[in-house]
């Protein structure tokens, strides 16, 4: 397969970026999208040019490192996968592919396709945890948790923190990310004592980071490689209302 790539290149956060065009030759259908970029990069290095910087690590869809907007789709055109799980058989010979970084003020570009997502860590720091001291836990079976609640908590907890929801959102909002953590911990009895304080603080941090707000488009859940549902956003909203109208 031969493909034409239009790739966003940007030296650093302050520099002005732009699209550059590359030819990707000898691409096999079994290659992953990132392996295709590896091939292009090897070629660039041999020519003495700087390779395209992109983040990746586990390459099996769980670490959340990789992320790029491919032809207007965060993580590419296929549903429920991250960029590393996209394979070249999805494309046809001669295709033109546009590759860009996540775009949001809260995710400044570090270089090319690499963005700084530490804003997501700071949202977790604001309250995305249960305060339990090591060693102070009761027996694991001391509190039975209905399977339904445990499953719902798990569905929210599968978030890999890749930031595709922000990239897809027309408002660059991080609501799905924040809601997933609020809903995960809120679904469990252990998460109750800090439930309302948590949602207040996490939302405040999300706003402070410069993310946009939620207009309920649902683009985030379509882009999410773990198919996290916007139901969790409704849950966050509900908790937020209660947080303001209850005494706790």
């Amino acid at each position: 397969m031969k493909l034409t790539l239009h790739v966003w290149r940007q030296q650093n956060a302050g520099a002005k970026g732009g699209f550059e065009t590359y030819e990707a030759r000898d691409i096999g259908p079994d290659m992953s999208f990132l392996e295709m970029l590896d091939v292009v990069n090897e070629g660039l290095i041999k020519e003495g040019k700087e390779p395209i910087a992109f983040e990746h690590d586990c390459r099996e869809g769980i670490c959340g490192s990789c992320g790029m907007v491919i032809n207007g789709n965060p993580h590419g055109p296929k549903k429920a996968i991250s960029s590393c799980q996209l394979h070249m058989r999805t494309f046809a010979d001669g295709d033109k592919i546009w590759i860009e970084p996540w775009r949001a003020k809260a995710f400044p570009v570090r270089k090319d396709l690499v963005v700084d997502r530490s804003a997501l860590d700071r949202i977790i720091q604001a309250g995305g945890f249960i305060s339990v001291r090591t060693g102070s836990a009761p027996d694991a079976n001391a509190i039975p948790i209905p399977k339904e609640n445990a499953d719902s908590a798990f569905d929210a907890a599968t978030c890999i923190g890749c930031g595709a929801c922000v990239a897809a959102c027309p408002n660059a909002s991080a609501m799905l990310f924040t809601a997933a953590k609020v809903a995960h911990l809120g679904a469990l009895p252990q998460g109750q004592p800090e439930r309302y304080e948590r949602v207040r603080n996490m939302v405040a941090q999300m706003d402070a980071e410069g993310f946009g707000y939620c207009t309920n488009h649902g683009a985030c859940q379509t882009a999410c490689p773990k198919e996290i549902s916007i139901d969790f956003i409704a849950q966050l909203n509900r908790d937020m209302m209660r947080a303001f109208f209850t005494s706790r």
């Binding site: 945890f129 249960i130 339990v132 090591t134 060693g135 102070s136 836990a137 009761p138 694991a140 039975p144 948790i145 209905p146 399977k147 445990a150 499953d151 908590a153 798990f154 907890a157 995960h184 911990l185 469990l188 252990q190 998460g191």
Partner: peptide, 15 residues
Amino acid sequence: QCVAQGVPFAREYGG
């Protein structure tokens, strides 16, 4: 420790 932190381990119907 992990359960107290909210790790959603698999559970049986009895909880």
